[in-house]
Each structure stands twice: as C-alpha cells, then as structure tokens.
C-alpha cells in the first residue's frame, strides 16, 4: 500500500479546525452569560457571510474539479490503445503488458457480478479505478509514466474470495 495522500491531511486540517472552533465557541462557561437575542443578532449577521462563503466554496470546488472528471477523456482520445479487461469471480482477464508513456483505455466489463478494477502502482499507491458491471463496458483512460509491475485489486464486494481477487500487468 502507498503512503497517505494530501486528502488525508486536508481532512485532518478541517477536522482540527472544526473541533477546536466548536469547542471554543461552546465552552464559554467561565465568561458571563449573554441574553439569547444579543448572541443571535450578531450570529445572524455573521451567518450571512458564512452562507455565501459556503455556497461560493461549493460552486468553486465544483467547477475547479470538472476538468479532472474521468468520464469524457476516453471518448476524446482517438489515438489511445484499447485493452479489454474482463472480471469474473475471482480473477481478471487483463493484458500482460501495457505500454509506457502512451494513453491506454481499459474497456472493463464483468462476466458475472459487479466487481471493481483498481490499479495499484509499483509503490503501492492507488492509481485509478472503475467498476466492472455485467452487461456494460466502462472505459477507463490511464497514462503510465513509471515502468514496473502494477497490481489489480477487486474494489467491489463480489463474494467469499473478494479479498483474494487480484491480477496484474507489466508496464514497459
């Protein structure tokens, strides 16, 4: 397994900020109590800014992340090499070798139940994933820039040997 990514630390920062500010705001016991209307009148004033900050943050995050959505990149790549991947309890039929520094598209499907096609880099970090669903083909575009042995793990619960459902391929 790989090291934890920046998301973990972003989460920790948000959690620490939320916990400490709420504890500070709630635990004003030692100071004189105020009437409710005094607290609410200043609270409502601050809330207006807080509301717009949360809305603006949500919309900004949405638009900033759209270019990194994985859905349309497969269709936009006419030069990419396609590799079929078929999942079945409890293994993957996948190509043994995948080229380095080229766009590849995995055409992922399943013969029986829902599976997940999770690619783990040689350093153990999760690289990308897509679901494998019976009756459908999901196209996952990936570009490998590091050579080595990549591991495939099933990422959707598929039965008793789910944890043992693995595969792999070499990138060179």
């Amino acid at each position: 397994m790989g090291n934890v990514g920046p998301i973990f630390w972003i989460f920790c920062a948000i959690a620490v900020l939320a916990i400490s500010s709420m504890v500070l705001l709630g635990n004003y016991r030692n100071r004189e109590a105020l009437p409710q209307d005094v607290v609410t009148s200043s609270g409502y004033a601050i809330r207006r800014y807080w509301f717009w900050a949360v809305i603006a943050g949500s919309i900004a995050a949405f638009f900033l992340t759209i270019p990194s959505f994985p859905y349309l990149s497969a269709a936009a790549n006419a030069d990419a090499i396609h590799f079929p991947v078929v999942a079945q309890q409890y293994g993957f039929a996948a190509p043994p070798v995948v080229p380095l520094n080229r766009d590849v598209i995995f055409d992922v499907s399943s013969k029986d139940v829902n599976h997940g096609f999770g690619i783990y880099a040689p350093n153990g970090a999760m690289m990308s994933q897509v679901q494998a669903m019976p009756g459908y083909v999901n196209h996952l575009r990936v570009r490998f820039t590091v050579p080595g042995r990549y591991l495939i793990r099933c990422l959707e619960y598929c039965g008793i040997a789910h944890a043992a459902m693995q595969g792999g391929f070499d990138v060179r």
Binding site: M1, G2, N3, V4, G5, I7, F8, F11, G116, G118, Y120, G124, A125, M126, R153, C154, L155, Y157, H162, A163, A164
Partner: peptide, 16 residues
C-alpha cells in the same frame, strides 16, 4: 481514514 487514504480496500476479510 488512514487505511483508506493508503488505498486499503473496504470489505476485505484479509487486508493487505
């Protein structure tokens, strides 16, 4: 959270 961020899958009876 730590295991998830390190890529450990959920619903594994035997975890890596």
């Amino acid at each position: 959270y730590l295991a998830g961020a390190a890529g450990v899958p959920r619903r594994y009876a035997l975890e890596p």
